[in-house]
Design a binder for these strands. Sequence first.
DNA 1: CATACGCGCTAAACCCTGTTAGCCCGAACG
DNA 2: CGTTCGGGCTAACAGGGTTTAGCGCGTATG
Lengths: 342, 342
Amino acid sequence: MTQHRATLTEVARRAGVSPTTASFVMTGRTDMRISVETRDRVLRVAHELNYRPNLMARSLRSKVTQTIALISDTIATEQYAGQIVYGSLAAAAERRHLLFIGETEGDPVLEERLINDLLDRQVDGFIYATMYTRRARVPRSLRGQRLVLLNCAAAGREIPAVVPDEVGAGRTAAQALIDAGHREGIHLVGERAPHLIAGNERIQGIEAALGAAGTSLAGSVDCAWWPESAYEATAGFLAAGHLPKALICMNDRVALGVYQALQEAGLGIPEDVSVVSFDDSDLATWLRPQLTSVALPHQWLGRRAVEILLGEAEHRGVERLPMPLRHRSSVGSPRGRSRGNG
Amino acid sequence: MTQHRATLTEVARRAGVSPTTASFVMTGRTDMRISVETRDRVLRVAHELNYRPNLMARSLRSKVTQTIALISDTIATEQYAGQIVYGSLAAAAERRHLLFIGETEGDPVLEERLINDLLDRQVDGFIYATMYTRRARVPRSLRGQRLVLLNCAAAGREIPAVVPDEVGAGRTAAQALIDAGHREGIHLVGERAPHLIAGNERIQGIEAALGAAGTSLAGSVDCAWWPESAYEATAGFLAAGHLPKALICMNDRVALGVYQALQEAGLGIPEDVSVVSFDDSDLATWLRPQLTSVALPHQWLGRRAVEILLGEAEHRGVERLPMPLRHRSSVGSPRGRSRGNG
DNA sequence: CATACGCGCTAAACCCTGTTAGCCCGAACG
DNA sequence: CGTTCGGGCTAACAGGGTTTAGCGCGTATG
């Protein structure tokens, strides 16, 4: 069933050369002179025998496996993970590398074990990804390894990292409202907390853009970054008599809760209230009206991480990838309502 | 930086034994007698030197890599993929195996290349997954390899496969309505097409369960399995004067569109219309009211596939995994409305 | 004519572990 | 006392490549 695989030695014998010569031909090394005729003969025989090098043997000697590892704290719970994996996978495939995948579940013991198992397989490098932007402690076992951080940065150490430009995203979201004519009644929906780095940076960008336009946030609705919490908080906010003109939601799930509350209160989107959000998940296109959202470039994060990991460019420091606006139908001009209402 | 890794020979020398003995101790083989003292001494030295076997050398000899590959047509587009990956990963980790991941994008050339690259790395087995249940053509290069299909089955060949029990899921969904007292006005939402195997099987189960309860589908709303299409079709259906009692949605995204249409028509869920769905995606808990849905056991599919792949049990044929009902708030008794309305 | 040199190639070591055949030695046995 | 036997261990090779050192030969050079 599993037919015989030709070895390099067999190829060499059939081509009438030494294994050494065959090796040099197959690896395409030029520092050892080999005549064109010999080269072609070896290649022809290799093709005839359908020769494929034994990578185990090769790696044993050369320590190179053409293999990288993507390890992360959470693969499963975040749907975005798939996008990161996909981007990494595509970039790795283009460079003829294969991708190991591993999950630590945030457990340092599992993490240690996983990294050791990967080192045993002699992976050429690691991508250490976190699903939420945060500061990360790089495991000891990764010291000295080729490493790129994704979605996180290490305190102090000069390790290349790729993260979304959340401050820019905040500016983009606010600018979308400003461009539509909004100046007043702009509220934030979603809690602030020290560990929510993405949130803090987004807010920073939002405030900067609003400030530049001569205005500022009118207030905020405090809630967890989930639909139910956002629904309840927003419903309460509206019931208390507030009448926002525009809501900036900390992510699309929050926007879903906001939609529910607004619709229940009989408020139209975007006629009465404009909504803008972050992440650009699938949900954004499913809502009615479709949600304007600032996209997390997950696929690109994965791709970039691999490029830096495998690239000869000695990249250092943190690279921030732009978060583009996906303009849809949830942002409108405030005029209609402003005039009609007062 | 990358400190020296102790080799088996070094361990042997420091323990005062031959490499052979050290090898037998480290691999824990019992067919060669080794005294307890020698064994302990070798183990102690190995521990002192922090010895880890070189898996390349080991694999070169033994052809075993403790590594499996999960290849699929689409990792990225389906959010469920993450769950499959997670299940496989966890099951593989428990058995101390690592997981390669690869995507073919449905392209046979890429697929061939990917499989060859994986075979070069001597993976111990393959999981061939499709994101939608369908009949699959197994690539030639996988003939003779250890292989488990996931979400698909191969025509004719006796290859182990793991798929969701969609017929059972259909029965479960219908039964949920029947148990709530529904008999009339039960409609299906979502198109039928030959290639939508899951859909056909679900319908088969639905009809069986309804038939057993002495009733049958009152009709169906034809639409693609997406929110927008479902919204439009359902809105049109309601506008035409139909007044369904219960809607069985072909997936959660369809249910989202259905929710939107029902709410816009002023119909309450579940007071006026009960809704039940398939997949149990994140969306199900985000909707208001929360959606009763029959869960796709993605995580379990991944886990089971690995178990069969690595298990000594010579499993053959197709294993159907149950799809459990997630009971939430979108199904109610039809009485309220029935009385009030008719 | 002897030496130097570059071309084209090879022998042999090396990477690290797994496996087979068999050695040495003490005890039991006839 | 010679032989058999089994426990405990080792020498040597296999696995399939990469890499270093250097060889033979023809030609240009002094």
